[in-house]
Design a protein around this nucleic acid. Structure first.
Lengths: 220, 220
DNA sequence: TAAACCATACCAACTGGTCGGTTTGTTTAA
DNA sequence: TTAAACAAACCGACCAGTTGGTATGGTTTA
């Protein structure tokens, strides 16, 4: 259950050999189909409301396969979460921030991606991270820990980039990088939340305008 | 079901007559107990996970009473939502903003209440509005409409106050009041969301510091 | 009496999870 | 080169428990 979380991300080399249907890769394919359909069902209905029967239907396998690969629903959900959410935050936030010399511009670009809806998910369905976080926080320790770690990595990437900006003169000196980083994430999450609440993407554009002004206020 | 939404808020004059146990007020009392325990259960477990059996147990009545007063779970949830959430937003935001001459200071005070946890709910359980919004938005039209209206009233109160501040010189002229108001709500919701996600109230204090700086940047 | 109010027993649908058994691919040994 | 032995992968009927909701009859009050 706990080692599941560490085991999942290491499936990078799939498909190994799509032609030969060996025992190993057949199992891997079933498992991958389960994880993918689990993520979709969880994203659309939430973890608790996601039905295992629907998940296996979408994955094209049966209960037996599911419980061969995963101990229980909890382990499946954790696997799906780790595989997709971690990758999303890493690709869209952590990696771009890691080396940028001008963090405020980078952040503006990233937020712009969200505002214009090319981040791979329907904004009206909410941010997957936000959705699951709100549902599972406080009721499941394993999900809780995963969120906490992911959030810390996210915020640390922002803090590092902001401090780098302070040193090279693209960010006003004297700001509290941790505080600003936290507010940036919170604002972003909040906007996603409001878009979902109102089912109106216009809210995102409206808020983004003021958010960009805020970013500018952090310039020297 | 739809008229329920309009019927609920007009119970302002409760209790009517606690001494005389007439038919009318006996029913009102049962109904009120149901609405209250429904709100608590929904707040703690979410709407879908809230069990009607638990609700009637906490309310001290039975299924018969419940389905005498409400058409179904949906109507009960809507009633509880309208009664408690609407009142909360009105008391904490809309009323104080309605007449203030210095909106930025008022907003700072309101956010301060949340940051120091004296708003009547455990921050780690999340904001009730935020919780329900995230769960029900996009899957239930009636809840959706209620959220949309409440959010608009909330934002309008902020916009009016900010424009008033622009006129009387407590707010910098030339800001986009709608945009700023939207970002303020989003930030606040986002912070609540992050506190719940990390189960760490310190996040609120950290983010609030940067948020106060942002408010100051809106001064003349 | 009539109507509002409440209690109990009950229902079909669905939940996550289990289990005995079958299929399939690999390994071993003759 | 076969065939036996083995284990991973898979199947689907089934389980107990819970859900929201209903049917029906009794009680309280105007």
């Amino acid at each position: 259950m706990t080692d599941m979380q560490e085991k999942i991300p290491s499936n990078a080399s799939f498909p190994l050999n799509p032609d030969k249907d060996g025992r190993q890769i057949r199992g891997d394919r079933t498992r991958q189909a389960l994880v993918e359909s689990a993520f979709e069902e969880i994203y659309m209905h939430g973890f608790r409301a996601a039905s295992l029967n629907d998940i296996i239907k979408k994955a094209g396998c049966t209960k037996g396969s599911l419980y061969h690969h995963f101990a229980d629903k909890h382990a499946l959900g954790l696997a799906a979460t780790a595989e997709f959410m971690g990758a999303h935050i890493k690709e869209l936030w952590i990696d771009p921030l890691a080396e940028t010399a001008d963090p405020l511009t980078s952040i503006r670009t990233i937020i712009g991606h969200y505002a214009f809806g090319d981040v791979g998910h329907d904004p009206r369905l909410g941010c997957p991270f936000q959705n699951l976080t709100q549902e599972m926080a406080g009721i499941d320790e394993d999900f809780q820990n995963y969120f906490k770690n992911l959030f810390e990595a996210w915020r640390d990437a922002l803090v590092d980039a902001l401090k780098r900006g302070e040193r090279n003169g693209t960010v006003r000196k004297g700001i509290d990088a941790e505080s600003v980083a936290t507010l940036i994430i919170a604002s972003h999450q909040g906007v996603a939340s409001m878009i979902k609440a109102t089912q109106d993407e216009g809210v995102g554009h409206t808020a983004t305008s003021a958010f960009f002004d805020y970013l500018d206020s952090l310039r020297p």
